[in-house]
């Protein structure tokens, strides 16, 4: 299938660009982040030559040509060698990221998909029942909720439901004293801890999906094929779902892919508020400690995740739209 091949090619190109951006960022900045990082690291004890080389490759030290540095950097990325964190010295960055990533993927990924599906359904309903309370309520509510900063919604929920009411735990992804394991008890505990952060992301991102789907659906409702379907006496439900909504979902999928970055960004702040041990909280820790190797690696992994998610959305689009299959 040519469509998939084109998309894979584009994905590889975008991945390369993201990796290169990650290489250029510290080098474009004033001052030398690498020197700062090495100085900071030296406080923890002697720096091994291997660590030094890795950090220099990552953050750029004026040794060797830019091109040599670039090649070495690419090599490091390909082998997941992101150097050593000095916040959590001497743990390697790769291990820290690998430990944090699943928490974020499950929390943010799952909630975003749920929010998109739920918001889309509400948007369909709002457009179909235009002018009734089924339209007004989600539209007005969505407009306000989507203007809330993620971290503020998080703070409010944390304060009122966590501290004041005491219904939910106020930090972490699982109870203190337990260790992650595959057991029903731990799973329930993890879900219990995830409810507040998940609700935050749901509330704040839902509005955008509702409004987006509503407006595209209102457009498709005016299309000729909808009028013709009505003229042919199709059942209203068929017209709404298989004709109007089915076409309206397509542009919305594209905006879903593009809005994903924003949702992920907001979720990072939510993790910070709830001290949820995902990549967002780790990024916050890295930034406040000027742990550049960790920070760079996290940025790269977040970007790559979003790029991959976009790729999946693109493929899904291709499956849903027969016009791209030709």
């Amino acid at each position: 299938m040519r469509f998939v091949l084109t998309k894979i090619g584009l994905l590889l190109l975008t991945l390369w660009a993201a990796v290169t951006l990650n290489f250029l960022l510290p080098r474009l900045m004033p001052g030398s982040p690498a020197d700062a990082a090495l100085a900071k690291l030296a406080q923890n004890g002697p720096v091994s030559p291997a660590t030094k080389a890795a950090i220099e490759a990552q953050l750029g030290v004026p040794t060797g040509s830019m091109f040599d540095q670039y090649l070495q950097y690419l090599g490091n990325v390909a082998t997941f060698d992101f150097g050593v964190s000095y916040t959590f010295f001497p743990q390697p960055v790769a291990g820290l990221v690998a430990a944090a990533l699943p928490w974020t993927l499950v929390l943010v990924g799952l909630v975003t998909i749920i929010a998109f599906i739920f918001g889309t359904l509400l948007g369909v309903l709002a457009a179909w029942k235009r002018g009734t309370w089924l339209d007004t309520l989600p539209t007005v509510g969505g407009t306000f909720a989507s203007a809330f900063p993620y971290f503020w919604t998080a703070l409010l929920l944390l304060f009122f439901l966590g501290y004041v009411a005491g219904w939910f735990p106020t930090s972490g992804a699982y109870g203190r004293g337990t260790t992650p394991e595959f057991s029903a008890a731990f799973l329930l505990d993890a879900i219990y801890h995830a409810i507040l952060p998940a609700t935050t992301i749901l509330i704040t991102s839902l509005g955008g999906w509702i409004l987006g789907m509503r407006s595209t659906m209102i457009n498709t409702l005016g299309d000729d094929y909808v009028t013709f379907a009505e003229a042919n006496g199709l059942k209203p439900r068929t017209v709404a779902i298989r004709y109007a909504a089915r076409n309206a979902i397509l542009p919305n999928l594209t905006s879903f892919g593009l809005a994903l970055g924003g949702v992920v960004g907001g979720s990072l702040l939510v993790e910070r508020v709830f001290a949820y041990p995902g990549v967002g909280y780790l990024l916050y820790t890295a930034v406040t400690n000027q742990d550049f190797p960790l920070m760079q690696a996290l940025f790269l992994i977040i970007t790559i995740s979003v790029l991959l998610a976009n790729f999946i959305v693109d493929i899904l689009y291709g499956i849903l739209d027969p016009r791209t299959r030709r």
Partner: peptide, 21 residues
């Protein structure tokens, strides 16, 4: 030109009508 649902096969257009009535 635009009276047909672009994401539905012509066959399904007919079947939708048969099913509706």
């Amino acid at each position: 030109m635009n009276a047909l649902n672009p994401v539905r096969s012509i066959r399904n257009h007919f079947y939708d009508i048969f099913a509706a009535h």
